[in-house]
Amino acid sequence: MLPTGRSSSVAWATKTRREIRETGTDDGSLVVIPVGSIEQHGHHLPVATDTLLADAVSHLGAERANDVPLLVTPPIWSGFSPHHTSLGGTMTLELENLLALLENVADTALENGFDGVCFVNGHGGNASVIDNVVSTVGKSHPDVEVTGLTYFQLAGPFIDDIRESDVGGMAHGGEFETSLMLHLHPDLVTMADADAEYLDEPYERGTQDLLVGGTLSSYREFEEYSASGAIGDPSLASAAKGEELFDRLGDELADVLRSVSEQAR
């Protein structure tokens, strides 16, 4: 999978085996693994939203880190999303199966000589799995720099320059994700059906927003938060905001990849 409307010079899937090995044997080489999900995002966004966005941000960040030898694998399209299944449209892996899948992809990619790996996650429900796979792959490959992040958390330093919604407006299918999708995949967005509500987390120490985390985790089915399956304020979304978010996220990820490459040398 490649970002719509453009090719990518860093896509693993477009390279020959010789090209992949040559990149892997360069000093400080990295393999970037986007991780998404197939889960409902309300009535206005496609179920592949998390996968499409993680993949696009991964390619942009990798292309901008053009001084680093790296390749971006095809995205892992299914994540851990049991809390979305009752609303329909969702496909989820069991936790242990997702962990094993990520380990297998990393293990075989690293056989091509890469010095480091970075998992770029696009789904909040995958975050704990990403933390775990960094540890398990790191333990199996002690000479490799193993890292992972959730891409939207990179927006923390600049999000207040862009957002208009109050806390709770940038959640699942809200201002943030809808803006990015309007920029990257406008043909897949149906704004007339953008029915959502602000996140109302009962725990004061729980997650309040896509970019406002909490110290307390809890579990509930998603319809307890939203009848439509979307949370936040998509009415404030725009392609212009999405373009700025995408541009700045690309710069942030490129900076991360350069740092990881330096550590991997």
Rank of each mutant, 00 (worst) to 15 (best):
34 P>A: 11
76 I>P: 03
131 D>P: 00
27 D>Q: 14
58 S>Q: 03
60 L>R: 15
59 H>T: 05
101 L>T: 15
97 N>P: 00
113 G>L: 11
55 D>F: 00
129 V>F: 04
50 D>I: 07
121 N>C: 15
80 F>H: 14
29 S>I: 04
133 V>F: 12
89 G>D: 07
131 D>S: 13
85 T>A: 10
84 H>M: 13
140 S>R: 15
62 A>L: 08
135 S>E: 12
32 V>W: 12
82 P>A: 05
123 H>W: 11
37 S>L: 06
138 G>D: 04
87 L>Q: 15
29 S>R: 04
121 N>K: 09
23 T>H: 04
29 S>F: 10
110 L>F: 02
65 A>D: 02
132 N>A: 15
18 R>I: 09
95 L>K: 10
46 P>Y: 11
39 E>D: 06
24 G>F: 07
33 I>E: 11
50 D>Y: 11
24 G>S: 08
89 G>Q: 05
42 G>D: 07
66 N>H: 14
117 V>P: 01
66 N>E: 13
65 A>R: 01
123 H>N: 13
11 A>Q: 02
100 A>C: 00
53 L>Y: 05
42 G>Y: 08
134 V>P: 02
51 T>M: 04
31 V>K: 03
38 I>M: 14
98 L>V: 08
106 A>I: 01
74 P>C: 06
62 A>E: 07
84 H>C: 03
116 G>M: 08
116 G>F: 10
106 A>Y: 12
114 F>L: 03
